[in-house]
Each structure stands twice: as structure tokens, then as C-alpha cells.
Design a protein around this nucleic acid. Structure first.
Length: 747
DNA sequence: GTTCACACTTAGTATCCGATGG
DNA sequence: CCATCGGATACTAAGTGTGAAC
């Protein structure tokens, strides 16, 4: 409430200066939740902000997520090396960049790409195809050998072997066909500015099925009495009932929002009867829902197959479009079904009803010449337009935030791929001028203009820490999260001296998706002094950079280099870090598993830099224990194999080394030991990898920040098949990079 | 110069589904 | 053969950034 008032007082100005008022006396930054995740930190903070003046206890979370704090016991051992890597790298990275004049990056950006581009195919496809064939053959061989070695007698393997072989061949064929039909758009000329396509045809979005009323034996009760709800109210009741097991439904905000919106769907009578959510009994509805889920799980094979086929049919019909003569996959062809809004973190709108979208809400975009998608019977589209300067096929306005949702193409499409490629080219361009830009903002730290200084400090953070830009947000509309430009005084704490370092800035705030960012960073003196200055005479809730916003920052950046914005720094620093880390961590002599561990560690360094976190999987401890048990079993096995080997050796010696049988026995035992050792190593590597990954999410950086050409070049250089680092859909997405990149690629 | 609308990327989590091992 | 596990995929929220309107 207090917050809303505040917001209203300000009018929705997002303007910095106006924001200054906000709350008064919280203590400094340290929100310390215990969770990585919003809940702890978050709620603490928002209460604090709202009830003006409740200084809140710093639970100083030595939270594991920070690179610095390897304190969590479970991790310590494994965590350490990673931390070292990280810090070491970071130091190195900065140093290098600063000290060296930067060897010839400038010429590297556009020419090589296009060169490679032209060279590439022709031979490439062939060798690719062949390589694949060879590889899979090898694989088959291996499995065969193993089976023969370990269970020489079983009859099953033989049949399966053949089947496997066949299936593999089939797969290969399919792959080749797919390869053939793939649109190699990266070899084509680009369209003129702004034009995204020349022809676009599709079948429109797929609408979720209509609501199915509850069966007669399932009832809703209010205040102990059975109540038959109207269809609309019933549907919304079901939404809530379905979520009853979820924590959401226990939250006050969620319940209030829900109840308010639910009542809007009720008839007059219902509304006058149902006045208190606590008196509502959704038990039977909830039970019914659970039973349904269970039933779905227990479907017979045939039933499951039928469902699958039905789904496939939908995909076939709605999942593709025709774009400039090529069939392209649509990313999200389904209209989002109605339900209760699940915001992340302490979202003020959680629990609100997300309404059902009708064709009358949907705008269709396609070519003039294309056949217009047919709306569901009895309906019509809101509008049909033919705008080839945008990439979406359909759009609608969502009722929670009033934002527009789009139906767009899949990541493996030309439209997405081209943009992605472009993004990395901009980042590479930054590489060539990043030194100048860094010098510039170091100069600006001393500027007489407060605005310029603030910009310089912000840029320093964005560059060094890969913070997001931090656009302003309207209060009360979303969870209270910040990025660089929207940092408030309460989000940082200055330490002249901390843990042996000077000028340490302690960050503690909630970023995108209410993921906590917690980090203690030594900064240069000038930055430190500036920060002190910026914080003078401000309240905790005031903006740290009151003379700066993302717009100004980006305007400045684009004047330094065309196309440069704050987020390019994230891309650039992520990619360059990967490249450096790969160079540092990979040993040519390692085996594939070890190389992959190195790759993952490099990837992980980036994920840490970008603060990409995940909730530790629920089954994490369990599965870790399982793996450990396996390892132990393997170890025993190994010990056994070793003693057997010894035994065999002894016998061989005793009976004279001449006996060939004994010799082969020794050899065989040796091989067994070796195999066992390899398997053990592999598992141990896997265990290390998994442990280090406990709450780090690698996917996001892999998918969005790391120039795929770095990975492809690495895979070629160290002879690790690209399939080991990219799964199918990732390979599809990065087809352009896989196709055009040679081993000597440099970011 | 602000503000808003719009388009598009980035993000974590829920769910699906197929490999794996008992 | 079945249950379990974990990776892949689906889903959609939450960011960034631009340009036109005011």
C-alpha cells in the first residue's frame, strides 16, 4: 500500500529526480536472504521499503552464489578450484585488456567471416556428412565390443545390435536429408534495412481448448455448503484449485489478487454469497485435478501414442510457416491459455486472472499475397495486417501488464539466426575499441559534470561486472528489481577495507527474475570516491545514479561505436571470457571427458560472471549420493580387478612366463583394470561437474551470450565432436556457426 | 526532453520423454 | 519390463532498447 501511494504521488514518472523521495531510513543494503532466490532477500526488502523505517536485520548471507564465498560446507572442496579459476581469470582478463594494446582485433571482424563464409561449403557438407557416418560407426563398434567383452554369451545383444545398427543408419539418413533441406540463409545476401521478409504465410495461432465444466459429482463448497458455480466462475475456481499444492496459494498478495479477480467473473448472486476466500473449499476440485494428472500418467501405451499423434497433428498444422519459400518452424504457435498470473519474486500482481484470448483479440501478420489464416468457426480476427518490417506472425495484448505478446519463429529460423549472428558481430566490434572506451570512462570518472561521472561509474560496473542496464520500472506494476542504472543507495555498501582488499563495494540486490546478486568487489579508488559522493545526503531508497538513465547511457555508447549499447558489454565479456578460459583450461592431452569438464568450467565462469542461477534441483542431494555410490562401487570393482591382475601376474611368474595362456590372461586383466579406471575417472569428472553446477545454470549463457563460433572452433581444435557440447536443438540454432566456423576462428 | 508503444532478447521453471539400470 | 532420473523442450515472464508522439 505504502508503495502504491508513493507511486501515485509521483505520477508514474519514472524520472529519476522524482524518485529521490522514496523511503527514508532503512539501513544500508544488506538484504540478506538466505535463499538465492527472491523469497528471503526479497520479502525482507520490500517490507522494509514499504513500512518506511523498519531497519531490517542484515542476515548477511554468506550465500554460496558469490564467487568469493566458498563457505558452504557441502561445496567447499569442489567449489574452490572453480573460485580460483574465476578470480584468476577475472584478474587476467582485466589486466590483459588494459595492459595490452590489443593485438589486431580490428581487422579480424568482418573479413574473416565473409572469407570463411565463401570458402566453407562445397567440401564442408561432404566432410561433415562423412565425419558423421564415421563417428556413428565408431560408436556402434564400441558398443559391440563392450557387449562382447562383458557378456559374451547373451543372445539378446545380437538382435538388438542389428536393430541398433539399422536405426542408426536411418538416423544418419534422416540427418543428411535434414541437412539437405536446411536453408543456408547465411550464404544469401541480406535484405535492405528493415525488411524482414518478402513472403509470409501461416495458419494462425492455435487456440487452447474450451473450458470443460466440472462433472456432476465434483462440488465446490462455500462455508460448508455446496454451491453450483456459473461456468465462468467455475473455470476460475479450477485455476485456483489446481494450484493448491503450490506455495503461491498461501501468499497473501496472491490470494487477494485472485479473489478480487475471481469475484469479477462471478454472477451477482455468487458475488453476494462468496465474500471470503478462506471459506471456500476447493477440496473436491483439487482432488479431481490430481486424479486427472495421475490418470494421465497411468495411460496405456496406446493412449499415450494417440495423444502424441494428436499433438503432432497440431504441430504439423500450426507449427510451421512459409517464409520466403522456406518452411520455418514457429517458436510458440499456441495462444497462452488462461490461468492465474505467476509473477516471479514478490510480484504485486501475482494471482490475477490471466484472461482467455479470443480470435477477436488477435492481430494476424502475413503477406498480402498469402492466404489469410482462417479464424476458428464463428470468430474473426481483430485485424489482419501485412507488415514486413516486423518478424511476428500474430500478436495480442495481455491483460495483466497490458503488454503485447507475439507469435514468432523458432530460434533455428533465419530471422532469429541472422539477428543472433549480428549480435555477436557487434560484440566483436566492441573488442576492437573496448580499450578506447575504457580509457574514456576512466577519464570521465574525473569529470566536473556529475552526470558524466555517474555515467562513467555505471559503465565501469557494466563492463567489469556484466550488470544489466537497469531500465526504470513503474512501481507497483512489477516486482522490485534493479539493474545498474536503477541501483539504489540501499543496494551497495562501501568498505574502505574488507578481507584484505581496499575499496570494496558490496552489492546486494535483486536483479531480473528476482534473482539475487550478491558480490563483494574491490574497485579502483576513483570509483570508490565517486560512489561515496553519489551517496552523500541520500536515503537508502534513493537512486544511486540520480543523473543517469539507460537512455542517456546508450546514447553515449552509440556515439562511441555504432550499435553499441549496455547489453553488448555482457555479450562481449561473456564471449571473451569463454575464449580465454578455454585457452587456459584445455589440455590437448586430456581425454574427451576431461576436455568437456574444461569446457563446462569455462562455461561456468561465464555463468557466474552473468549471475545465471538456478534453484538446486530438488533431487540434487539424492542424485549426488547415487552417483557417489556408483563411484564407490566402481572403486571396489577396480580394487578387485587389480588384485585379480596381481594374482594373474603372480601365477604367470610362478609358472614361467612362457605359458601363453597365462600371458593373455594377464593382458586381459590389465585391460579390465584400465577400463575400470577410465570409467571411474569419467564418473568422478561427472561428479565434480555436477557438484560445481549445483546452483549455476549454464544454459542461458550458452544460448544467449557465447558466440557459438568460439565453441565450434574449440571443438575442432581439441577434437571433441560438436555433438558433445551442443544438443540437437542447439546445433539447429547455431547451424550457421557450425557451418561457417573454422578452427582458427577468433572472437 | 519525456513518455509510451512496440518489438524483440533473455530468463528460470514446469513438464515431457526417452535412456538407463534394477 | 517398469520405474527412475536427468536432459530436452515448452512455456511465458521479465528484461533491453528504439523511435514516434506529445
Amino acid at each position: 500500500m505504502g508503495r502504491e501511494k508513493d507511486a501515485k504521488g509521483e505520477g508514474k514518472t519514472k524520472h529519476k529526480a522524482t524518485k529521490l523521495k522514496r523511503l527514508s531510513d532503512n539501513e544500508s543494503a544488506g538484504a540478506g536472504g538466505d535463499t538465492i532466490r527472491n523469497s528471503g532477500a526479497k520479502s525482507a526488502k520490500s517490507t522494509e521499503r514499504t513500512h518506511n523505517g523498519k531497519s531490517h536485520k542484515k542476515v548477511k548471507a554468506p550465500k554460496t552464489e558469490t564467487p568469493e564465498s566458498a563457505s558452504s560446507p557441502s561445496k567447499s572442496v569442489k567449489q574452490e578450484p572453480m573460485d580460483d579459476d574465476f578470480t584468476a581469470k577475472k584478474g587476467l582478463k582485466r589486466k590483459r585488456i588494459k595492459d595490452e594494446p590489443m593485438e589486431g582485433p580490428s581487422h579480424s571482424s568482418s573479413t574473416p567471416t565473409s572469407k570463411k563464409r565463401n570458402k566453407q561449403h562445397g567440401q564442408e557438407d561432404e566432410s561433415d556428412g562423412e565425419a558423421q557416418k564415421k563417428k556413428s560407426k565408431k560408436r556402434t563398434d564400441k558398443t559391440v565390443k563392450k557387449e562382447e567383452g562383458e557378456h559374451p554369451v547373451s543372445k539378446k545383444p545380437k538382435r538388438t545390435k542389428e536393430e541398433i545398427e539399422e536405426a542408426k543408419q536411418l538416423k544418419i539418413k534422416k540427418k543428411e536429408e535434414e541437412e539437405q533441406s536446411r536453408w543456408r540463409w547465411w550464404e544469401e545476401k541480406k535484405y535492405e534495412d528493415g525488411v524482414k521478409w518478402r513472403f509470409l504465410e501461416h495458419n494462425g495461432p492455435y487456440f487452447p481448448p474450451d473450458y470443460q465444466p466440472l462433472p456432476d459429482n465434483v462440488h465446490f463448497y462455500y462455508d460448508g455448503k455446496k454451491v453450483k458455480l456459473s461456468l465462468a466462475a467455475e473455470e476460475v475456481a479450477l485455476f485456483f484449485a489446481q494450484m493448491l499444492d503450490h506455495e503461491y496459494t498461501t501468499k497473501k498478495v496472491f490470494r487477494e489478487n485472485y479473489f478480487k479477480d475471481w469475484r469479477k467473473e462471478m454472477t451477482h448472486e455468487e458475488r453476494s454469497l462468496i465474500k471470503n476466500l478462506d471459506k471456500c473449499d476447493f477440496g473436491e476440485i483439487h482432488a479431481m485435478h490430481k486424479a486427472k494428472v495421475e490418470a494421465r500418467k497411468n495411460m496405456t501405451k496406446e493412449e499415450k501414442l494417440a495423444v502424441k499423434e494428436a499433438n503432432q497433428k497440431i504441430v504439423d498444422e500450426y507449427g510451421f510457416c512459409l517464409l520466403d519459400h522456406h518452411k520455418e518452424r514457429i517458436g510458440n504457435f499456441k495462444i497462452e491459455p488462461p490461468g492465474l498470473f505467476r509473477g516471479r519474486g514478490e510480484h504485486p500482481k501475482q494471482g490475477m486472472l490471466k484472461k482467455r484470448i479470443q480470435p477477436e483479440d488477435v492481430i494476424i501478420n502475413c503477406s498480402k499475397e498469402a492466404s489469410i489464416p482462417v479464424p476458428p468457426a464463428g470468430h474473426h480476427w481483430k485485424e489482419v495486417r501485412h507488415d514486413n518490417t516486423v518478424t511476428w506472425l500474430a500478436s495480442w495484448t495481455e491483460n495483466i501488464q497490458g503488454s503485447i505478446k507475439y507469435i514468432m519463429l523458432n530460434a533455428n529460423s533465419k530471422l532469429k539466426g541472422e539477428k543472433d549472428w549480428e549480435k555477436y558481430e557487434v560484440a566483436r566490434k566492441l573488442k576492437s575499441c573496448v580499450d578506447d572506451i575504457r580509457n574514456q570512462y576512466h577519464q570521465d570518472l574525473k569529470s566536473k559534470q556529475m552526470g558524466t561521472r555517474q555515467r562513467a561509474v555505471a559503465l565501469y560496473f557494466i563492463d567489469k561486472l556484466a550488470l544489466r542496464a537497469g531500465n526504470e520500472k513503474e512501481e507497483g506494476e512489477t516486482a522490485d528489481t534493479v539493474g545498474c542504472c536503477s541501483l539504489r543507495v540501499e543496494h551497495i555498501t562501501l568498505h574502505e577495507q574488507l578481507d584484505g582488499s581496499e575499496c570494496v563495494v558490496e552489492f546486494d540486490f535483486l536483479g531480473k527474475d528476482s534473482i539475487r546478486y550478491y558480490n563483494k568487489v574491490p574497485v579502483i579508488r576513483k570509483v570508490f570516491k565517486n560512489l561515496k559522493l553519489f551517496m552523500e545526503n541520500k536515503q537508502p531508497g534513493d537512486d544511486l545514479f540520480d543523473r543517469l538513465n539507460t537512455n542517456m547511457l546508450n546514447k553515449h555508447l552509440s556515439s562511441l561505436m555504432p550499435g553499441l549499447t549496455a547489453k553488448v558489454f555482457r555479450t562481449y565479456n561473456a564471449s571473451i571470457t569463454l575464449q580465454q578460459q578455454l585457452k587456459e583450461l584445455t589440455n590437448k592431452s586430456d581425454n574427451v571427458a576431461e576436455k568437456l569438464l574444461s569446457y563446462n568450467r569455462a562455461n561456468r565462469a561465464v555463468a557466474i560472471l552473468c549471475n545465471h542461477q538456478r534453484a538446486p534441483p530438488k533431487t540434487f542431494d539424492q542424485s549426488m549420493a547415487n552417483l557417489q555410490a556408483k563411484i564407490d562401487a566402481r572403486k571396489e570393482h577396480l580394487a578387485l580387478a587389480k588384485t585379480e591382475l596381481k594374482q594373474a601376474k603372480k601365477e604367470a611368474k610362478a609358472k614361467g612366463s612362457s605359458d601363453p595362456k597365462l600371458q593373455t590372461l594377464v593382458e586381459r586383466k590389465k585391460a579390465a583394470v584400465k577400463r575400470c579406471e577410465e570409467q571411474l575417472l569419467k564418473m568422478e569428472v561427472q561428479a565434480t561437474d555436477r557438484e560445481e553446477n549445483k546452483q549455476i545454470a549454464l544454459g542461458t549463457s550458452k544460448l544467449n551470450y557465447l558466440d557459438p563460433r568460439i565453441s565450434v572452433a574449440w571443438s575442432k581444435n581439441v577434437e571433441v565432436p560438436v555433438e558433445k557440447i551442443y544438443n540437437k536443438s542447439q546445433r539447429d540454432k547455431f547451424a550457421w556457426a557450425i557451418d561457417m566456423t573454422e578452427a582458427d576462428f577468433e572472437f
